Amino acid sequence: MYKTYASPIPITINFDATVSSFGGVGTSFFMNFFEKYIRLNCSHNVDSIKHTDTPPLTHKLKFKAIYIYGDPIEAVVSIFMRKYHGLHSQYMLCNYPKIQPILKNETLESYLDLGEDKFKMEAHFHKWFDTSRHYPILFLKYEKIWDFLPEIFDFLEIEQKHIKDFPPRRKRNSSLNQLSENTIDRLNNMYGKFAKELETKPPFLIHQPTIKQYPLTLFQLPLSLIQHRHMIHPQLTFSTFFPKIYSSLKSFQKHE
């Protein structure tokens, strides 16, 4: 149902871990805290990892990733309330060149009028959840982050004494109480089924690695070159620019 090989990003920077999500689930605040203790990807998504739709590739043996998810309806409302919908849909549609991103002046109501999901959150989640890497991936529900702080700190190998400095739980700005009944109904029509599916997922789940480390040759292209080409042609993917390496990656994964 979902494409497993969706142009995974090769990491050549010496990160300790990466944090990614489909957006609107507190990823930035989470990263802003933990980047004080470990080396993470860019919280402003300059490296295109924060919202990549597949787990990134790395040749590092000691590496971890966290994927944050939450109620997709709340997430969409949050993205629109922060007026981030235009740019965010560009990130989320980078592997869907035939779909036009949401316009900057679009409202939540006019977006729902289109009747088309332009964030692809369900596919984004499954491309992470159904993909294996040679490193562990923690799937973490945003609403339950504060209930699992000791486990999160253990996963990232950060001393427990810093838990007291973690930002306190606060009420989300994306309150559905501010929306009309009609808007809520249409949000449920578009994202309700996916929201119910996510309710069945464990709030804290570590997917242990099931495949071997990737060959070092997959990471010998400068990341700056990949980023530069992506900025020039944002709707073209890693597989478009480097088809031979991408083909090698697919072949390697399929034989694991």
Rank of each mutant, 00 (worst) to 15 (best):
A17H: 05
E106I: 06
K98F: 15
H44A: 06
A6T: 12
K144S: 13
H228V: 04
G24L: 11
S174I: 03
S180G: 12
V76Q: 07
Y84N: 13
I152R: 06
V19D: 05
K164D: 04
I137T: 10
H134F: 10
Q235S: 14
L61Q: 13
K83L: 09
H51Y: 15
F204Y: 13
E74P: 08
D16H: 12
T200D: 10
P10T: 03
S247A: 13
F194S: 00
R229K: 15
L57C: 01
R186M: 01
T237S: 14
S180M: 04
L149H: 04
E122H: 05
I232K: 13
P215H: 06
D165T: 08
Y69K: 02
F241W: 15
A65P: 03
H134Q: 02
L216T: 07
L40Y: 09
L176R: 04
V19I: 15
N41L: 10
N177F: 09
T52Y: 14
N45L: 01
E199A: 10
W146F: 05
L114I: 09
Y5I: 03
L61C: 13
I66C: 09
P234N: 05
K120I: 11
Q160A: 03
K164V: 11
D53H: 15
E35M: 05
F194H: 04
E256K: 07
L223N: 08
H51N: 06
D71Q: 03
T217E: 10
P97E: 14
E197G: 02
S78H: 10
N41P: 01
E106D: 11
N95Y: 11
T200Y: 01
Y84F: 14
P215D: 04
R229T: 12
I102R: 00
D53F: 15
I13W: 04
I49G: 06
Y69T: 05
S174V: 05
F194N: 02
Q160P: 00
K3P: 14
Y69F: 15
P222T: 09
F119P: 02
S174M: 04
E116C: 11
Q220K: 08
K36H: 05
K60P: 02
L103Y: 08
L156F: 00
K141Y: 08
I9G: 01
M31C: 13
V25I: 04
C94H: 15
K171H: 12
Q253T: 06
I152Q: 04
Q178C: 14
P97R: 12
R172G: 15
M231E: 11
S175M: 12
Y96M: 15
H85L: 09
T52Q: 08
I226Q: 07
H124N: 12
K196V: 09
A123M: 10
K141E: 13
Q208A: 08
K141P: 08
L205V: 10
L218V: 02
L156E: 02
T52K: 04
Y214G: 00
F33E: 01
F219S: 00
K164R: 14
N188T: 05
